[in-house]
Amino acid sequence: MEPEPSKLEVRPPALVDAVIRLLIPPACREHVLGDLWERYTSPRQYVVDALRTLPFVIWSQIRRTSDPLLLAMQVLPAFVFFGGLAGKPGADGGPAWLRAVIPAIAVAVVMVVRDAYYWPKYPSSRQAVLDAGLAVASAFASQGALAILWPELTLAPREVLMGGGRHLPCSVLDSCRSSRPRVSLAGLSQRQPLSGRLLS
């Protein structure tokens, strides 16, 4: 028996639904997607509704999963390894700390967002290593973006490679550090610490 036409009309397009599903942090994916589906009237309304809702749910998840102390433990080594304490001015005389702070911020942003998307289990050791790689890649990517937008603030290629090489093992250790949830809440909303990587 074929489904009634009215039942087909109220489904969001599968592709749009799949993209929005990916963008919603897993911890709140189930109910947020269900609510958006329930409010669905047209593909345009669905997309607008989702785009208006997404920043709030991502921000809320970041707030729940981030920990300033652990974040500092990831960002400070990046700052140091990329020459933030070198004291030597750059080729154009600019301060070294300013060049090092950009990859450190890139690492912070990527790690904070990455943590918001972990759910429901603690990441495995393989994921922890991948995260460390992601942290270093984000520092490299920040240099790539700077080279296009603001070349005078980029680090020398040698400094980038050395900084990345030093930061990687430190980041792996950071990522592998065992931790436990700080707050236990009912249902699925269990708070996870930033970079609390329990080795499985």
Partner: peptide, 30 residues
């Protein structure tokens, strides 16, 4: 906005002022 309501619900839950639980899935919500 619906998003502001979600953010507030999360915050209230973190403050232990409300509690939440998931119901069974329904076809009306995919």
């Amino acid at each position: 906005s619906l998003g502001a309501v979600y953010a507030t619900l999360d915050r209230l839950e973190d403050k232990r002022l409300i509690v939440s639980w998931l119901s069974d899935p329904t076809p009306a919500r995919g």
